[in-house]
Nucleic acid binder design. Structure first.
Lengths: 344, 344
DNA sequence: AGGCTGGACAGAAACGTTTTTGTCAAGCCG
DNA sequence: CGGCTTGACAAAAACGTTTCTGTCCAGCCT
């Protein structure tokens, strides 16, 4: 009953107060000012639920967080930064972020959650993260005419709004660097292949090899979870090949740390006997031993970009097809890689 | 107009349909069943906004994420796991998580956001994280009669619902382990002192020293951000003391990695010349070199506990004073610590 | 038989906005 | 001067639920 009280207090009608507060043109500047001042004075705040019901808008953006790992016990910490960036942008515009989480690794249930988000009227727009090569969520959102931005690209015959990091270039850079250092046996420790980022990374890796006329060996392109344990295990199995790889490009710094541990266990000196390059430039990568050569990746900034795109889409200032932001990517050379060892 | 259609379809009144769907007793079992079946068949989903307005409940739990670091550029990744746990519990009960973020390191603005959350009717309950020794947010929540659970304790003369990890015991364990290894010059690399966890950790450290009749040196208890860079810097400054500490207990694994880097730069062998113990048992700690001795800390599980407590509070099955969960804590011995070096 | 109880449902108010439509006077034009 | 526009506000209808208050009838007791 709050706007009612404010209206009574001002001797105006409810509708005039509402329109004054929402900046409509058909209320005089003087009245508008008076209303705004008085509202602030008595501490009036519109009830968000009533506002939502009345206007059919929720001022909320939904995101479904993927649980990381097969256990579903942890969330990929990268999303902390991404969402931090998103919230930083949307908060001042009066939007909030409604987070839900995918139960385990279950695409069907994830889609059901999405349906609920869309059909239930919980949110005005969606952020779709960790895109798969073929991603049903895009179709669901489109069918419901719900604006969305994806973080990561996907295969789609229709235009859609995406923000992505240049995975292909990143891995082209990393692989080329190793080639320049003389390496010829370079393994790829990649993320799960259903995710599109893994495809782009593989593509960059393959393109770099091809530019030197090197034939890739499928046995040297492995996939696994984005964890130290997985990087460790994949690297161990790669090291058992004869001849063994002399260099590893890894999908994340975490995987790189796992790979480094495996190399060390095999008695190899990192940066001399074997080279490892990570991805993400995690805060740790500069402090470990040896400091990790990796690829810079501004997750927080990407989140801000996503937030801005979402806002523009919501305001119809922009079309989905206009949101194509590919983060440029730079290699951060440190000490975990070096010239290829001379053959025994 | 959706429940209206459903009611028409069934030949029942709106109120009966509503009450059937919400499991009230004054609708016959047969009718209830019929309504539920039909609702599912035509895919009826109650509009959450209308429901919220009608019932005055939001089915939403609010949390304000602290931005980590003075730059406000990143979110502490620990919260990914914590919130993951919370969502895992509240999601099945129909609750969602509304996340907002604190702008930079700004307690005043954080409190304003809290006020907005509370007074604006956005949420039914609050999760208060990263408690400070004196935390105004508790008073704000209490004044608004908004149920809440804190993650971390604080100083308060009234009972409140909290979930916390046993910081004091953790640091008592770690410090005692170092004492048992013969160390006498043990430094504490702690988090920002306004946070209560830092106080508890210091207390554990001091208690361990006191039990061996050792006098703590205030110059050896330093505070800083929970980052590698900060751990690195604090450790460097501690190493410049003469005599220098032979061991470091750190507030997080990240700080420990920074400290280890500083020790290495000083030419010290980790686990031999100098011992370092971390906190958190991050996934990396087992894979770094040397593997980090640290304290196990189940953030995801704590999040689940928080979620359950919130739900019980909301259902009034429990009083705030009954929610006092102190996570037991275990030390994970690895290789970053060892016997105190013999004096030169 | 009359009153009381309780079960099963219906009617209607309330929730607090937004938005559509309406009113009314002042100003302008021909 | 009469009709038309326009500026500034008001009235009332939505928005889709929940919940409070009825209503009605069957069954029971005394």
């Amino acid at each position: 009953m709050s706007i009612v009280l404010l209206a009574k207090d001002l001797g105006l009608s409810i509708s005039t107060v509402s329109r004054a507060l929402n900046g409509y043109e058909d209320v005089s500047a003087a009245t508008r000012e008076r209303v705004i001042l008085r509202a602030k004075a008595i501490g009036y705040q519109p009830n968000p639920n009533a506002r939502r019901l009345g206007a059919g808008k929720t001022s909320t953006i939904g995101v479904i967080l993927p649980a990381a790992g097969s256990t579903g016990q942890a969330v990929d910490s990268m999303y902390s930064s991404l969402l931090g960036g998103v919230v930083t942008e949307i908060e001042p515009a009066g939007y909030h972020l409604l987070a839900s989480m995918q139960a385990k690794h279950d695409a069907a249930r994830e889609n059901a959650l999405f349906e609920n988000f869309i059909r239930g009227g919980w949110v005005d727009a969606l952020l779709i993260v960790r895109t798969r090569v073929h991603d049903a969520r895009l179709e669901l959102a489109r069918a419901a005419k719900m604006p969305f931005v994806t973080y990561g690209r996907t295969e789609s015959d229709q235009p859609y709004a995406w923000v992505d990091t240049d995975n292909e270039k990143a891995f082209h850079l990393a692989t080329t660097r190793l080639l320049d250092l003389g390496h010829r046996r370079i393994a790829l420790i990649n993320g799960p292949e259903e995710y599109s980022f893994a495809q782009f990374r593989r593509r960059g890796y393959l393109r770099a090899l091809a530019s030197r006329k090197l034939k890739p060996d499928p046995a040297w392109m492995l996939h696994g979870e984005l964890t130290e344990a997985s990087g460790h295990e994949l690297c161990r199995s790669l090291l058992s090949h004869r001849p063994a790889p002399t260099a590893f490009v890894c999908a994340t710094d975490s995987m790189a740390f796992g790979a480094i541990a495996a190399c060390r266990e095999a008695g190899l000196a990192i940066g001399a006997d074997v080279s490892v390059i990570g991805y993400g430039n995690s805060s740790l990568s500069a402090f470990c031993d040896p400091p990790l050569t990796t690829v810079e990746h501004q997750v927080f900034e990407n989140g801000r970009y996503v937030g801005r795109a979402l806002l523009q889409l919501l305001r119809k200032e922009i079309q989905p097809a206009d949101v194509h932001y590919l983060e440029p990517v730079v290699l951060v050379p440190r000490k975990s890689d070096g010239p290829a060892p001379v053959e025994a």
